[in-house]
Design a protein around this nucleic acid. Structure first.
Ligand SMILES: [Mn+2]
Ligand SMILES: [Mn+2]
Ligand SMILES: [Zn+2]
Ligand SMILES: [Zn+2]
Lengths: 138, 138
DNA sequence: ACCTAATTTATAATCATTCTAAACTGTAAG
DNA sequence: CTTACAGTTTAGAATGATTATAAATTAGGT
């Protein structure tokens, strides 16, 4: 077993999932990458089923992605009601969104000045701060 | 005809819509307010049909809200894939989102330090910058 | 090898949104 | 005041993403 595969098995076990062949294939599609991967469930499903002889059902893709999201191995990114994205970059960061091709681009935390709020809501604490920069051709 | 009503008729005509009784009722629900109104289509539909003798169809609510969005009298706010909100405050501003009750709260532009990006995407210009601050009970 | 709970899968159900087409209405010309 | 007709409303159908279901299959322990 490769180093990568045992890493996938760890991720799966941490997510309370048994390492099945379908889930390993999903891990390969998600995590065997040098760059951040931004995807919709449909993107991932198409990617998986185009290359594979043994298809993986859509339900399994949904289940696995959501389990990874819940265990923190994937981040969910809300762009608009038409596009529900996930992100393999789970560090704190923001995004550019190019509406011409529906592409997400990472904006590293150090590429943006710290967001400073002058207003607070009494009795509430901040859970997250997300910045979305929509871009278009010049 | 009241001042308010003629204002609604102006909004409707600017949105290329004839002032029908259904649309005037929708305007009253949306714009006859002192505070910003954040709502989902379902919220608005329930509000309208609970108080009214003559019901308005869901299709008309969708059509009118989208026409107002397209003409700039309403802003669409993307929180997550489950909640598609609209906002009667069309000025540039950001939001708190309280996940315990799904409530949006305006964060005035002057209540947040200007967002400064140190990264740009060549050939692209910025279309919008949106900040969403999720909050939870302390 | 056997047992059992977990998993996969096809399919159905759900839900928001959009589409459709028939009935209705506002407007303006005759 | 009629009439004509484009614009509007509406119920219901269609769509598409997501979630639920339940039967068949599989993984992992004994
Ligand atoms: Mn895509
Ligand atoms: Mn609400
Ligand atoms: Zn990212
Ligand atoms: Zn607002």
């Amino acid at each position: 077993m490769t180093q990568k595969t045992s890493n996938y098995i760890t991720k799966l076990r941490n997510s309370k999932l048994r390492p099945t062949k379908q889930r390993i294939k999903i891990c390969e599609a998600l995590f065997d990458r040098s760059e951040t991967f931004h995807f919709t469930i449909r993107d991932l499903y198409n990617l998986l089923t185009n290359n594979l002889v043994h298809k993986i059902s859509l339900a399994t893709v949904y289940n696995t992605v959501h389990a990874f999201k819940n265990s923190g191995y994937l981040k969910q990114i809300n762009i608009d009601s038409n596009n529900n994205y996930f992100d393999t970059n789970t560090s704190h960061h923001h995004h550019f969104f190019d509406e011409t091709n529906n592409e997400l681009i990472d904006l590293k935390n150090e590429d943006i000045k710290k967001i400073e709020l002058k207003k607070i809501i009494p009795g509430k604490k901040i859970k997250s701060v997300e910045v979305l920069v929509k871009i278009e051709p010049e």
